[in-house]
Structure formats: C-alpha cells, structure tokens
Design a binder for these strands. Structure first.
Lengths: 240, 240
DNA sequence: GCCGATTTGTCCGTATGTATC
DNA sequence: CGATACATACGGACAAATCGG
C-alpha cells in the first residue's frame, strides 16, 4: 500500500510503461499534463519521474519531454538488483529454494576481519555459513557476519529459513542501504567441497555491507555464486 | 565547474565526508543549519542530501538526523561505477592504457543481434572489436556496436584513441544513461586467442546499452574482463 | 506516558532560467 | 520570435519520528 502520493504516481506510471501503454521511445505526457491528470503539484510529479529515471525507465530531455527507455527483459536467470532476499529472488524466478546451514557460531572481530568488514575490532559477531540450493543444485555459498548487539537471538533454525525475515518481522529492524562490491575469483577448496560448480573454476563474489534504519552497519556478507545463475543489473547516469 | 547550486553543495559536503571532516557514523548538521550555512532554501539542501544518499555516502533518519555511512575504500583494482571511459578509469588507477583495434567494419542488424542489442532489425551499425591493455597485459576484450546514423564518421584511428571522446567532443552528443548487465562466462576461443587470461577459465562480461541525451539507444557493447582487474560497485536502497 | 522541541518527510504554489521546436 | 517543456530555486505548511524532560 503506497502511502506517499509521489510513490503511487511512480507505480502507476511504471505499470503503464511495463504494459507498453507508454511504449519504448515514446514521450510521456508533459509534467503539466500529468499534474492535471493526477491532481497534484508539479514537484510531486517530478519526484515520481526522478525515481523512474533512477530505475532506468525514462530519460528527461529538457525542452522536449520525458522519453521512455524501458525495454522488457528477455530470459531471466538470477537477477540481483535492489535489495532482495534469497527467497524473494527465488520466488520471482519460480525456482525451488533450499537453504542448508553448514556453520553457525560466534566470533570476535580480529584486526583482519574488522578491516574487511567495517566492524570495529572486538565486536561480537554471529558467523553463519550457508549453502543455497536452487532446483536441487548447490549454487550459492554465503558467509554472513551479523552484529550480535543488533541481531540478538539468532539460531540455526532461523538461519535455515530466512534471517532477513527474522530481522525485519521479529526484531522490527528495517534494512535501508546496502553497499555492494562484485568481483570474480578462482574457486577455493571450500567452494569445490560444497558447491555444484559444473565445470567452472571461478565464482562471482558479492560482498555486502548492510545498514539499518539508524544508519548502523549490522551485516557483512560474502556470497559466492556459481556463474550460471548469476546476473547483476545496474543503471548509471552520467553527471554533468 | 558546477553550475547548479545544489551540485556545488553536494560536492562540498562530499569532500568534507571524504576528508573525514564529517566522520563515519556521525550526524551531519541539521538541514536547517546547513540551509543557514550555505545560504539557500531547505529544498536545495535536501536535493544535495538526496544525491549523497544515492551515492551511499549518507543515510537520513527521520526525527534524528543524517548519518554518514561512507568508509574509505581499501585497495583499488579496476573499479567500474557510474559511466566512465576506459581512459578515465585507467587514469584514476594510475595504469598505463593501450588500445588495439582488431576489427573494424559495418554490419546490418539481423534478428539475433537486434534482439540482444535492442536495435531494430536492419539498422546499420559500426562493429568494432578492441583489445585493452593495462600495464602491458591484455585484460579487456570489447565488442562495440554503434548506430551509424547517430555516430557518423567513425574511423579505426578514432577507435584506437577514444570513441567516447569523439562522440562527446567532436559530435557534441551527450551520453546520459547506461543500462548494464554483469555476468560470468566461460572463456571462448576468441578470449583465449587475444587476452592474457593468466590461468582463468572465466571472464566477467558486462553488456551495456547506452542512451544519448535524446533518449535514443546508440550503443550496445559487450566487454569481457580478465577477473583480476575487475570490480563492480553498487549502492542499493530498499523501498518502503 | 505525555508534552514540546527538534529534525526529517511530503506537498504545495510560485518564479525564473534554459532548451527545443 | 513565441510557445512549450523541463531545470532550478525559494518559501511556506503540515505530518511523522525522535528525544529529553
């Protein structure tokens, strides 16, 4: 349920674009027209259009109009974009998801871990290692560190279902910003031991720093993906 | 040279954050304070803060303040973020860059190429294949398609220097939005023939759709990266 | 638990600048 | 040149969240 007006307008226009009601390469109605159509101020329309632009749906051209640059995606594999849980992604791609916990414990951040994770030395952390299966194949090896202070009461059972679901629904903590870095690495012995590599000798590695609604770092994760089901999408805008 | 006021404020605050003048985890001065400090309206400050948030520098917390979540990056390899040319990226990482053109010609988009590139069937395209060397190693294999109609007068000489420089400075066309997709693939025979793979049997593949200031698709590119020098960064924000 | 001060979030109306046609 | 469209900026109003007393 969209609360903010600009958000419901954003969704409304997005839907029309996806339905190709506003087709690729066409111009949207002008901001003034949309203002009248939705019964709001021009600023509110502009906020919705800015968000559509950030999502790569439209492109504003001064003096001319707002052009639709959205094209429906073809075959989807495993798309990572925005902040999504493993479960959400699996569901969106109609894949059967299973999680297996292969390590669950606590550690104190040493100098090396502090440097790479962004936590402070001495922070008490949960360390969770999980294997993710899609349609019966072990495709993702996750190594999560959570700040115990902000994520109390974690158990192996929760880890086997959805830690994010626990954090958001049980603890009531909101996840807001996620900073990610993507690289490609040679497989390790651990990868070979656990994952269905299917002939690959490399994995896609995503490291992740996650901040809650208070702007506090509470999670550092390294996800190692078998290449077949990995796809990372992005829209960039050039600054003047 | 920043024209817009919000942009110069954005840069000013960004610099202070990078200098740790506003340190990690601290709160920025309130919007009202900044309004007084910069002599502008609150909306203008908010625009600058929104851009900082989009870049993963800060996180706003309602009723509380705006928290700094920027942490200086450690060792840099070859960072892809925003829209950057090969030359710009090389310079930023202090690497000696050389480009070698291994194919230069024109093609007409067939059904398959049209589907994967987003061009229309029958569009006349430049097809350029280039090898990128950093510090003497062949690390990136680029396959570019440009719409001839929008990028006239391309030559192998231009391709060897910078096509983007030509497009922006000579043709006066502005590059605005870039939609990218990142995957990992097995090396092909072409990869093995041209690149210094250094033992890897996979490459990171970035496909790119680039739109000009008129919102028209004018470039489709596939870049194949040797993994050692590849890093893709991203900041995502969860929607309510 | 309530209240008031502070701070960010949303929305409006208006004015002016700049690019396109 | 004028009309149209997006870009920037200002000021004001009220809502919602946080925090301290």
């Amino acid at each position: 349920m969209p609360k903010a007006k600009y958000e419901s307008i954003f969704r409304s226009i997005k839907k029309k674009i996806e339905a190709q009601d506003y087709p690729y390469q066409s111009l949207l109605p002008s901001e003034n027209t949309l203002t009248a159509e939705y019964g709001c101020s021009r600023n509110t329309i502009r906020r919705a259009l800015a968000d559509l632009s950030a999502d790569g749906y439209v492109q504003a051209i001064q003096g001319k109009g707002v052009r639709v640059i959205y094209q429906p995606v073809g075959k989807t594999t495993f798309i990572i974009g925005g902040i999504e849980t493993f479960q959400e992604t699996a569901r969106r791609n109609n894949l059967r998801a299973v999680t297996r916990v292969i390590r669950f414990g606590t550690v104190s951040a040493d100098a090396k871990l502090a440097r790479e994770s962004g936590f402070s030395e001495g922070d008490e952390l949960w360390a969770v290692e999980r294997l993710r299966y899609l349609d019966g194949k072990a495709l993702i090896l996750d190594l999560n560190y959570f700040l115990k202070e902000l994520v109390p009461g974690l158990t192996p059972e929760i880890a086997q279902n959805s830690i994010y679901e626990y954090i958001e629904n049980q603890l009531g903590m909101q996840i807001v910003t996620s900073k990610r870095k993507m690289t490609v690495e040679h497989v390790t012995m651990r990868d070979e031991r656990w994952m269905d590599l299917d002939g690959y000798d490399c994995v896609a590695v995503v490291t992740n720093h996650t901040f809650n609604a208070d702007g506090l770092l509470f999670e550092y994760t390294q996800s190692r993906h078998q290449p077949d089901y990995f796809c990372f999408q992005d829209t960039a805008t050039r600054k003047k």
